[in-house]
Amino acid sequence: MKRHIKYQVDAQADWGAMVGEQPGCERLFSCIQCGTCSGTCPVSIYMDLSPRRIMALVREGFRDDALASKTIWLCASCYSCSVACPQKISVTDVMYALKREALSKGILPKDLAIPVLAQEFCSMVSKTGRNSEFWLVLRVALRTNPFALFTMLPVAWNLMRTGRLPLGREAIVRKWELPARAAAKGVR
């Protein structure tokens, strides 16, 4: 196993504190590094850094390592870690905070469709107020791996023949009430 040494000068100590200020992340600094989060996580074996390591990196301010990890995107938000944590840290909310910063700074692991799904989902819902499942999957596939559409054909066919794949575009009626539109019109 290769060992990576971390140097204090590469850390941004105040960054960890900034993460800890976000809603749901306030217990971050009470982490005792017990590893319960990694133990309960159903996807930790697929992660490049275990959830426990992410918690340690964030606390010390190793921003780039934390944000560039696949770990934060593999988190499926099942909240197992959050309810199991003996220190009552909502690890899931810390993962969300990291995902948001990675997306806004464009620090994304290569060849991973999960952040693309987040982008496309938000862009669709912020405009129409609803998610049209068929169009969402199509847009994500076209941006990441169009050939994946072939492997999806059997699933799509089974959905269609059982009447479970509407092809229309869903939207709410009063779109002006959506957060993006209301803010533009309002006083803020």
Binding site: S77, F121, C122, G129, R130, P179
Partner: peptide, 21 residues
Amino acid sequence: DWNCCGATTYMSSDERDAQLL
């Protein structure tokens, strides 16, 4: 005229708007 709940995916991108939805 219900709208998308904000879901898991929205929380990864914009926490404020996810809560507002």
